[in-house]
């Protein structure tokens, strides 16, 4: 039956760290995966001491999709909750001219998550339970000049999650799409963010924890972003194209 285990991919991001704390606080055993396994050691010791839970760490490279099967095989157990918190913003301007960078942005935000989540989807479908959480972005709701490479990859990811939800809804597998607005993290460091609309990693983590428990489908965090993005999507393209955001 269901275990109290959660797997967090990209465990060293600010949002992922807050998520780990939230689940640790609630007594979940934590499985943390990231590329820099050395930095995970400190993090895992910290979580064990704070919350008295088991913490397992794994080296995981999202872009090496050929390693994903082995990664899953090596998991201590199959956690019933999978949270994919990996994302790469990249400098839009650089991406416009740099094939390597834009490929990396697309693969990190779309291809990589799609691959690993697909494998888990099959496992969850077979066992008849499980929760998949994908952290996408409001940037995927409409393309704008300042971040459309990132945004388009996130749009693909959002659609992937929505399709997956449609497939698994009858199989007792819950798929949650998380659409954060602006959040104060390493990713947004140095950007001018609207203070009233910008969330903290802890707030995002709380929202995700609640949404998982309430089996929500899509959440915006902060909530106001649902309205903002609704309005932005309503703007006719012929007006939108001349605006700068």
């Amino acid at each position: 039956m269901k275990n109290k285990n959660v797997l967090i991919l990209g465990a060293l991001s600010d949002i992922a760290k807050s998520i780990a704390q939230k689940y640790g606080e609630n007594g979940y055993n934590l499985h943390l995966a990231a590329r820099k396994i050395d930095d995970l050691e400190l993090h895992s010791t910290d979580l064990k001491i704070r919350y008295n839970v088991n913490v397992h760490i794994y080296e995981f490279d999202l872009l090496k999709t050929e390693t994903h099967k082995d990664f899953i095989k090596n998991l201590k157990e199959i956690p019933s909750i999978l949270i994919c918190a990996i994302g790469l913003l990249g400098q839009q301007k650089d991406g416009e001219n740099d094939l390597e960078l834009r490929t990396k942005v697309i693969r990190t935000n779309y291809e990589g998550p799609l691959n690993i989540i697909s494998d888990f989807a099959n496992i969850y479908e077979n066992q008849g339970y499980g929760t998949i959480v994908g952290i996408s972005s409001v940037a995927g709701d409409r393309g704008k000049a300042s971040n459309y490479i990132y945004g388009s990859a996130k749009a693909g990811f959002t659609v992937f999650l929505s399709g997956l939800r449609n497939r698994l809804a009858k199989k007792n597998v819950h798929v949650l799409t998380v659409l954060p607005g602006t959040v104060y993290t390493k990713m947004t460091l140095g950007m001018k963010l609207p203070k009233l609309l910008t969330s903290s990693p802890d707030k995002v983590a709380n929202d995700i924890y609640d949404a998982v428990n309430k089996k929500k489908d899509i959440i915006y965090t902060m909530k106001i972003w649902r309205l903002i993005m609704f309005i932005i999507r309503c703007i006719p393209e012929r007006i939108f194209k001349n605006k700068s955001f």
Partner: peptide
Amino acid sequence: KYFNHIISF
């Protein structure tokens, strides 16, 4: 702020 780990007790 990122040096925020508890190491041992």
